[in-house]
């Protein structure tokens, strides 16, 4: 839980100021520091970032009455009648989750290797 909260808070602050890929060094470092099993680190990093992106995009979409989320849904080939914005929000977290997950994994493997 501590690791999750640390991941969440650290990457939230960093992302408000820096490009999206700042999550990579952050998850890598945090995973190194907390020293859990590699695949646990992968999953918890993935979930932390995925959730953050999902929540934050859902929040922004609600404030916008989902105008843009639905439009981009159509751009991505999703049906507008099928909750386009929500699918978009679900998809949105995936790239962040993947990069964060591998960051977490790499952090542990690096610790174990050196």
């Amino acid at each position: 839980m501590k690791m999750f909260i640390t991941l969440f808070v650290a990457s939230l602050i960093a992302q408000l100021l820096l490009p999206w890929w700042i999550i990579l060094p952050i998850t890598l470092f945090i995973s190194y520091f907390f020293n859990k099993s590699p695949w646990f680190s992968f999953i918890i990093s993935f979930i932390a970032i995925y959730l953050m992106w999902l929540l934050f995009s859902t929040y922004q979409s609600s404030m916008n009455d989902h105008i843009l989320g639905n439009r981009i849904g159509v751009l991505f080939g999703l049906s507008p009648n099928f909750g386009g914005w929500f699918l978009m929000a679900l998809i949105s977290g995936i790239p962040g989750g993947i990069v964060a997950g591998f960051g977490g994994l790499a952090g542990q493997y690096i610790r174990k290797a050196f």
Partner: peptide
């Protein structure tokens, strides 16, 4: 570019103007 575009901090969600 999916990461750059989909992340809610400076990707496309940032262009979703609050309606109220």
């Amino acid at each position: 570019p999916l990461g750059k575009f989909l992340n809610p901090f400076n990707g496309f969600w940032k262009n979703a103007e609050p309606i109220n």
